[in-house]
Amino acid sequence: MHLSSGLELFPEFVVTQLLFKDVKNCAELRKMAMEGKIAGALINPSMVLDPFQTLLAANKAVHVQKIGKMKTRSLYSEIIFNLSPTNNISEAFKRFGISDNDNAVLIVLVHNKEEAYNKDDVLSKADGQQIPADQMSTLSDLAKIKKLYKVAPQEEKCGSVLDAVICRMAAKDVV
């Protein structure tokens, strides 16, 4: 169900992604995350096309944490921030974080390779149906994604929408 991926650049870390639909307690989850009771990033899955997109955001979050250049307060908020094409933090949380009346959530955890992370803890907190994380694209809102990342039709001639999204995420500190 969940998807665990190693970070080659930071071999001590593993990123685990869990996807839920028909979630009834998004407001409660959001509150818990803000109070630091959930050690994970709660992401609005309609803004994500592929697990690779969130994996890149997590990789960059670990990278900026290591070099002491985080723009937000925690590793998990940094993951949400990295998904956004702009440098506006509150805008990033609004678009890529979850809202109280959402009914799906993608939870991204970063944990130590050895340390068994508390998956059961997360599973018990989310009141919804877990679905395979690689089915992320079934929940994504392509039109909204294209609009937010400003993907024009001509760009799709030389690559996928995912490619366009990834380039914007990678390039946002240099443009």
Binding site: H63, A152, G159, A170
Partner: peptide, 26 residues
């Protein structure tokens, strides 16, 4: 930075260039 910018500018115009995955400015 300029290399990344030019790749993005080309791709936006529909000119094929490699996708940028990640930039380590440090």
């Amino acid at each position: 930075a300029q290399e990344v910018r030019s790749i993005l500018r080309c791709r936006k115009a529909g000119i094929a260039a490699p996708v940028v995955y990640f930039v380590d400015l440090s």
